[in-house]
């Protein structure tokens, strides 16, 4: 995994960050009669509207995550910013492990719960140090959604002194054995 680089000079302007999971069921490509992720979708849209309130939003995500971001931003009528445009808002598409239960996509791995607990604590604490130090090799084994995105989130948070960011977690659950968070971080 390679962390996306953060261009100096643009990152300083970031004041709003939202985190959503890269759940493909959020895409319009995969519609159901009953939305299997209705609560998650509602939380994602709330976070996306919030992060987009200040203007265009830059997306941090892998290829699939970028599609999820585009769909959510589109649904919330928030424009997407280019990488070097100095957007104040950033949408990070990343999630926890996918090995939390026997029914999880990656089957049960006993290390998953502890990994997610630590990652969740880092998110809630807006802990730049913990996020940038994420064990991306283990994250890969545990099928974490876009580990590099978590590292980049840490880098973004590190642009300001510790304690300058406040996190608000709108969703924290693992309905399919995959850990999802929807969170907003403001400075």
């Amino acid at each position: 995994m390679t962390a996306h680089s953060v261009a100096t000079g643009t990152a300083a302007a970031v004041s709003r960050i939202a985190v959503v999971p890269g759940v493909l069921a959020l895409l319009p490509d995969y519609p159901s009669r009953v939305d299997p992720v209705a609560d998650l979708r509602a939380a994602c849209l709330e976070a996306v509207r919030w992060v987009g309130a200040g203007g265009p939003v830059r997306v941090v995500g892998d290829a699939q995550g970028a599609r999820v971001a585009e769909a959510l931003l589109g649904a919330a009528s928030v424009p997407v910013s280019g990488a070097g445009d100095g957007a104040a808002g950033v949408l990070v598409v990343a999630n926890g492990t996918a090995r939390r239960t026997e029914k999880a996509p990656g089957y049960l791995d006993d290390r998953a719960a502890g990994f997610d607990a630590a990652l969740g604590a880092a998110l809630r604490g807006a802990d730049a140090e913990q996020l940038t130090a994420l064990d991306t090799a283990l994250a890969g084994e545990l099928l974490v959604g876009h580990p590099a995105g978590w590292v980049e989130l840490g880098s973004l948070l590190a642009q300001l002194p510790s304690g300058e960011w406040a996190a608000d977690v709108l969703y924290d659950d693992d309905p399919f054995g995959v850990q999802y968070w929807v969170a907003t971080l403001s400075s």
């Binding site: 759940v23 995969y30 159901s32 996918a98 996509p105 054995g177």
Partner: peptide, 12 residues
């Protein structure tokens, strides 16, 4: 002609 009732397999 009809959507699946509730599809999540592989899309979590």
């Amino acid at each position: 002609r009809l959507l699946p009732a509730r599809a999540i397999r592989g899309l979590q």
